[in-house]
Nucleic acid binder design. Sequence first.
DNA 1: GTAACGACGGTACGCAGTACCACGACGGGT
DNA 2: ACCCGTCGTGGTACTGCGTACCGTCGTTAC
Lengths: 225, 225
Amino acid sequence: MTKQTARERLARAAFELFDERGYEQTTVDDIADRAGVGRTTFFRHYRSKEEVIFPDHDRLLARIDGRLTTSSSGTALVAVSDAVRLVLLHYLEEGDLARRRYALTSKVPALRDREIASVARYQRLFREFIAGWMGDSGASSLRAELMSAAVVAAHNHVLRRWLRGDSADPVAEVDAAMRDVIGLFPVADPAASPAAPGTTVVAFSTGKGLDALLPELRRLLEGDG
Amino acid sequence: MTKQTARERLARAAFELFDERGYEQTTVDDIADRAGVGRTTFFRHYRSKEEVIFPDHDRLLARIDGRLTTSSSGTALVAVSDAVRLVLLHYLEEGDLARRRYALTSKVPALRDREIASVARYQRLFREFIAGWMGDSGASSLRAELMSAAVVAAHNHVLRRWLRGDSADPVAEVDAAMRDVIGLFPVADPAASPAAPGTTVVAFSTGKGLDALLPELRRLLEGDG
DNA sequence: GTAACGACGGTACGCAGTACCACGACGGGT
DNA sequence: ACCCGTCGTGGTACTGCGTACCGTCGTTAC
């Protein structure tokens, strides 16, 4: 008999009860009772009822932070993309546990909000890293914001696909998604990129002249009162 | 004297107390007492203590939803950009109230998380709208995710600049930021043209009239033609 | 006048999370 | 063997948010 720690028994009991009755219908007393420990012990191991579901999130966040600060990639966006891959791998290692958590967060709004708040912390980390990597000038601030948002969005997209069982090879998908994201932000080359930040028209025809475009423009404009 | 409603007195009392003692140090009883009403009345007007700070968020979300579904812009991204401008304007109209809320959410983690969750609902709205506008094919799903994330990030960037007092003309800034975002995603009109080099103008901000855009259009088209 | 309705206040309750104290298991030193 | 610190634990009491329920008062309709 390997002696189970109270922490493990609590986690097991919590997920059992969440599956049986649902999250909100389960009290902390219920969890502690089934785990065979006192209510106080629960709060010693988990700061809140929600934390049973997201136990090692803080550690992961710290790992990602460390990974970024010791990064030696060529560009900030690539470094962040690598870090994102780490996050995805973490979920993949969790396996079924991650899927059970996903099932819960999909049903319970409070947990969904908590999950979103967690993701926002990663995004903040990424944003600060990117902003620090570039200068902290005003224009690059928006760029850093957009980059971090895009990276996180791409990660979430692939992760949710895998959680739903729609992805057989999420690692390959996240790599592809990250390439897409990196492709969105071309290295500053005003001669090559047609639409520098601050300009209005972003796509244009090499085949039609302006006159041919005008009717289409008018139609689009008039559509909005 | 216009007779103040209980709802107004409660909001005023709440913000007073939050300023004096901080959010967590203020109980619902404190608020109700200062407003001169019973504790029950508080929860009749606000579902929770947090909702005093974000009162009409649901209405705004519904307004944005309606705006999107009745939109007739040329592209989904432009329609969403216009909706984003509405959101920004809502905050601008709130004026000092929005800044006080910002001061609170900056200090209190629980409120920050709540704010993030609210923003996520907008992003979800945008993502679903964009995904519906395109086909629901797999590839465009990631694209919709990236677009909505970028739009929301740009909005938040400008909004926070204004909230901090760093922006004198946030409307102009958000227009510029939206143009940047649209510029990230070249051509998003499957009906008009395939995504081959040499495509047609499909995206521009409706913030300006056509006349104001024409010189810029001419300059860009002639410069690259 | 009275009956219906709506806003209000009060009480009681459930539950999350915190503070504090008391007890037993364990190990190390004399 | 004895003492002593520490650590994990359980128990109790408390604060505070949010809900349910009930009684009261004022307004309006008929």
